[in-house]
Design a protein around this nucleic acid. Structure first.
Lengths: 185, 185
DNA sequence: CCAGTTCTTGACCGGTCGGTCAAGTCGCCC
DNA sequence: GGGCGACTTGACCGACCGGTCAAGAACTGG
């Protein structure tokens, strides 16, 4: 699965043949079909494993943190750190996203992340810490910034995960505008 | 090209065969290879056309606007509107992104958008309107939010482009936090 | 009405793919 | 040692793919 992950991530799903995978690890094709039902099942298992692993990392990161905004922040940082440590897996999700067969799994994974985020956003709104916008928009906005910065600055440019995480958190929390002097207060 | 766009967007690049395309529009295979060099060239032309069209829409939207922050805002709105009107084209870019052959074209297109945004971000910083962060991070953050919200709320959930654009602009500009009372001022 | 160019057809080709399976090999238990 | 399930091999299969091309239709100018 590790080898297949690397090949899929680099080559794409269709261009990577089962023959290439088994040859790469030095076994016959029969071994592949002894352990996996099909090429499609292989990718599905890889994706599910990856999602489970990322979720675990996120949960671990926010454990014990009470403040909902800081939970969001730690989730963002954990996501970026994880994606830096699993470059090929992260890229694989991009690969799988365009295949209708794999979209449901990916959507489910993202939906889980969104629901987690929405929870903290709701808490934040109730405590007066977060602006009273639709939590779903906020959650997806957070995911969007995080994924884009990770993709560009970690995977394409190889910058330090901490710096990227700092930028992501800063943008998510405060936006891009210089704060108004808030004169009417 | 329109038919192929729809098929590629729905099925993916590899699963959509040339035979399927020519059958769908009721011509022989020879016609395809009379007008296009290869299947790959077809997709490249579609992508280039789409990028040109999107860029034109963005330029038209910000024309005549002086304020850099409002230029960014109008760019965001134009992007979301365009992506709502060209659902399949937009989805096609996701499809093409995982194919190494098409990645350069897409990267170039995104790089153009980023450079445009960076320009306005720099202006905004110089005029004291935008926080003094790395313009590249800001620009990619803007793209990330915009793309994610468009993908989720327009393409998957069919919400009104104006509402999605409002949310994107609001998140980008002000972040998610309730503004501090700024006591130390 | 014909010659020549442009355009169209679809059978066909070499190649590759995911998947099968008869033929083993290996390791363990009796 | 022998019998049996667990595991492995790779030649092979049918299907399909992108691309070719001989054949001819349709149009054009003279």
């Amino acid at each position: 699965m590790a080898f297949a992950t690397a090949r899929f991530a680099e080559n794409g799903y269709h261009p990577t043949s089962v023959a290439e995978i088994v040859q790469g690890i030095g076994v016959g094709k029969g071994v592949f079909y002894w352990y996996f039902e099909s090429k499609e099942q292989l990718l599905l298992e890889i994706l599910k494993d990856a999602q489970k692993d990322l979720r675990r990392a996120q949960q671990r990161a926010i454990a014990g943190e009470e403040d909902p905004v800081r939970r969001l922040e730690k989730g963002i940082r954990a996501t970026i750190t994880w994606s830096a440590e699993h470059r090929d897996v992260y890229r694989l999700t991009q690969v799988a996203a365009m295949e209708e067969r794999f979209a449901p799994v990916l959507r489910k994974g993202q939906e889980v992340a969104v629901q987690d985020a929405i929870l903290h956003v709701r808490d934040g709104i109730q405590q007066g810490l977060v602006r009273d916008l639709d939590p779903a928009y906020i959650a997806h906005g957070i995911l969007g910034v995080t994924a884009q910065l990770a993709r560009t600055f970690i995977h394409e440019r190889g910058e330090r995960p901490e710096d990227v995480a700092d930028a992501a958190v800063s943008l998510v929390l405060e936006g891009i505008l210089v704060p108004e002097p808030t004169p009417a207060r």
